[in-house]
Structure formats: structure tokens, C-alpha cells
Simulated scan of single mutants.
Amino acid sequence: MGRGRVQLKRIENKINRQVTFSKRRNGLFKKAHEISVLCDAEVALIVFSHKGKLFEYSTDSCMEKILERHERYAYAERQLAGENDNSESQENWTIEYSRLKAKIDLLQRNHRHYVGEDLGSLSLKELHSLEQQLDTSIKQIRTRKNQLIYESIAELQKKEKVIQEQNSMLAKKIKEKEKAAATQHMTWEHQNLGAPNSSYLLPPPPLPTLHIGGNYREETAEAERNELDLTLEPLYSCNLGCY
């Protein structure tokens, strides 16, 4: 004997109602997955339990894209139907408000998911997708950070090269000035070597790094004492012979 037709009505027993809800929900999601695979269709399924808990299923394209596509098609159909009177225009604004509010709620929920909050309602597939999105974002952030670091290093290297060139120019100028001062001092010594009386020699120009003037004065004083001794020696001998 065949099975009789079951009358559809609300199950009064809470336990039986919950068990039936779980079974039928899993079967519904399974059928949605099968039709999406077999017919290459985009499917979005939203279920709220009697306690208000959300259960949803969507194909590879995310739920948000499917809902936005539905809203666009519905709005286009309403426009083609000639809904132009004031009441219908007000209804369109109401629908637009509802759509934007739903989109804002969705963005806020996604933001909570991105910061690691309110993850209890996500399935394993949704958690995996969220993890991939975060990994992609982290890679992009690291790439941008490394680019800024490389640009900063290149700028510092340019500044270092400019400073090194300036230091080389300053060192070259210092060497040229020291060489000019040494040449001037050697010229002065050469001009005064053949002077008849060293006591009339002018002191050499001061050199900041070479202390030659003091030694030269000592040699000049010693030469004067030797000349004075040579001058006094004949006089002293003559005086002794006269006596």
C-alpha cells in the first residue's frame, strides 16, 4: 500500500520541529548546490530559523554580488513596467532605502569579520574565503611597505653620495691651500739664503702647521755670536803683544 499524502502544517513539538528544520535545511542546501553545479547557475539561499538565526548558501560568486544583481534586475523591470506615478516613485525610494540599508548592514558585518569579531555564524567555507581575503590584503600591504622602504633607502644613498662629493671637494681645497703655503715659505727661504748679514733678515711668514721661525732665529743669534768672537779675537791678541 502506498504512502499517503502528508498534510503540510506547523509541527507543534519543539524537538521534532527542530529536527525537521535541520534535515530539511541540509536537504535544501544540497539541492541548491546540485542545481548550481549541474546547470551552471548562480544560486543564493537565505534561511532564518524560528529563533532568528541566519543560514545562507551561495555559489562561488559571493552572496552580496547575487543580491546586488537581483536588485538591479528588479529595478530595471519596474522601470520598464512604467512605474512613474508619485506613489510608485515613493515606493521606489523606499526600496532603494531598504537596499542601501541592507548593504550598510552587510558592510558593517564584513568589517566585524575582518577584525575577528562575530565569527560564530560563519561556515567553514566562509571562514576559508575570509582567510584568503586577509592573506591577499596582507601581501599587498607588505608589498607597499617594502616599496616605501626601498624608495627611502635610495633617497638616503643619493644624499650620502652628494655629501661625499662635497667632502672630497673640501679636502682638495685644503690640500691646495697647504701646498700654496708651503711653496710660499720655500720661496722665502731661497730668497734669503744669500743675504750678507743674517741679522737683517725679515722673519718668515707664519705657518700654522710648520714651526720654522723659532729655529731660524736661534741659528741667526748663534751666527752673530760667532762673528763677534772672530772680531774681538785679533784685538785681544794685539793688546797682549803691545804690553
Rank of each mutant, 00 (worst) to 15 (best):
M1L: 09
R99A: 03
N167C: 08
M63P: 06
K9H: 10
S58L: 01
T187R: 08
N192R: 06
W188A: 05
R217C: 01
L201M: 09
F29I: 11
L201R: 07
A221C: 01
K158F: 04
P208D: 11
T231C: 12
L127G: 13
V43R: 11
D135C: 04
E42F: 02
T209Y: 06
N16Q: 15
S152L: 03
S237H: 10
G52E: 10
M186A: 15
A221W: 01
M186R: 13
A181M: 08
L38A: 13
L124G: 08
S137H: 07
Q90P: 00
K125Y: 10
K161F: 04
N192E: 09
K30H: 12
K159Y: 02
L124W: 06
G52N: 08
G194F: 14
F55N: 10
L28H: 05
E56C: 03
L106P: 02
I46A: 07
L127I: 04
L8S: 00
L210S: 01
C242Y: 15
K179A: 12
T183M: 12
L106T: 08
E68D: 10
K139R: 13
K65M: 09
G241F: 11
R225F: 04
E91A: 06
M169L: 15
S137D: 07
D229C: 02
H185T: 10
E91N: 03
T94N: 12
I66F: 03
E88R: 05
Y243S: 14
R142F: 02
K159S: 10
L54H: 07
F48G: 03
R217S: 04
Q157G: 00
C62N: 15
G214L: 00
H113N: 15
T20S: 10
E34P: 03
E224A: 02
C62Q: 11
L67S: 02
S58C: 11
G27D: 15
A221F: 08
M169S: 12
P204T: 07
K161E: 09
G120V: 02
S49W: 05
N239M: 13
E165C: 06
R99T: 04
T94W: 08
E178H: 04
T94S: 13
L156A: 14
D40K: 15
Q166S: 14
R10T: 13
K158Y: 03
G4C: 00
S49H: 09
K101Y: 08
T94E: 13
R5N: 02
E12T: 11
